[in-house]
Each structure stands twice: as structure tokens, then as C-alpha cells.
């Protein structure tokens, strides 16, 4: 199934300073317009295919991030936007930050930058879309083989 043109985004702010969040939004607004790639920003994790997470993980948001990830249907792709989501960044040594997004969920694509620029966020989305297509194909093949076995 060709899903390249219709992946939906879910955006969640872990503990970022808002810089990356507004860059994610800026990437979706007319000047950069990531929506031309067919992505739509959705608020519902159950309809989302690509999870954009900004900011590091702290004790309070760790279960929230985990739950959002679990609620998303398979196949899914996770993009960590900004250094804080990649490694914890400048806040790595603070007492309340556990680390990057990969401390609680598996991250596929890392977008560096502080704040990550809209261009690099779009690049991350493009890579995520390709990976999403690949995973979707694998998923289809798996379903087919299981049907064949029955």
C-alpha cells in the first residue's frame, strides 16, 4: 500500500523550551509548508503515524510520552526534534531531566539543532515518511504471509 502521501503527525512537547515546538509549527505554516508532503498535524495519537517529540524526558512526562507512543497504531515512526529530545542537550545535567526521548521510547530519526531549524525538521519528516513506507510494506508482507499460512 502506498502510504507515502498521507502520514499524519503527532507533536508532543516533552520538556522543551518551546523553541523547537514553534519551529515545528513554523515548518507547517506557509513559508516552509511541510503539509505539501501530505502530512497533517493531528492531535489524536490513535490516528497518527509519525511522532514528533521535542524536549527531554523528565519524571512527570515519561509516562505521558510512553502512553502516547503505545496509543499510536503500528507501523509508526518516532522523530526526536532538537538536541534536548536527542540527548537531553543543555539540560542533560539538571536534576529533573532523565535524558533524551530514547530513554522511554525507541527513536528512529534524530533531528539536531537548538532550536532545530524548520528546514532540518522537514528533512527529518521526509526521512520519516520513507521509513514509514518501508515499515508499512513490511507490515503488509507480514500480514500476507500470515494469511497464507492459515
Amino acid at each position: 500500500m502506498n502510504v507515502k502521501r498521507s502520514p499524519w503527525l503527532l507533536h508532543y512537547d516533552g520538556s522543551s523550551c518551546n523553541g523547537c515546538d514553534i519551529e515545528v509549527l513554523a515548518a507547517l505554516t506557509p513559508v516552509y509548508d511541510a503539509e505539501r508532503l501530505g502530512v497533517v498535524n493531528t492531535g489524536d495519537p490513535m490516528q497518527a503515524d509519525i511522532f514528533l517529540i521535542t524536549g527531554g524526558i523528565n519524571a512527570q512526562n515519561a509516562p505521558v510520552v510512553k502512553q502516547l507512543y503505545d496509543q499510536m497504531p503500528r507501523p509508526k515512526v518516532v522523530v526526536a526534534v532538537g538536541v534536548c529530545a536527542c540527548t537531553g542537550g543543555i539540560f542533560k545535567e539538571t536534576y529533573n531531566v532523565l535524558g533524551g526521548a530514547d530513554t522511554v521510547i525507541p527513536v528512529d530519526i534524530y533531528v539536531p539543532g537548538c532550536a532545530a531549524r524548520p528546514q532540518s525538521i522537514i528533512d527529518g519528516i521526509v526521512q520519516a515518511v520513507a521509513l514509514f513506507q518501508q515499515r508499512s510494506d513490511e507490515h503488509d508482507a507480514l500480514v500476507k504471509s500470515q494469511k497464507g499460512a492459515n
Binding site: 527531554g56 512526562n61 505521558v64 539538571t94 536534576y95
Partner: peptide, 9 residues
């Protein structure tokens, strides 16, 4: 939810 603890840093 976004408390980081800058004052500690």
C-alpha cells in the same frame, strides 16, 4: 510537565 530544574544547573 516541562519542569527541568534550571536553577540547579
Amino acid at each position: 510537565f516541562i519542569h527541568r530544574g534550571l536553577e540547579g544547573l
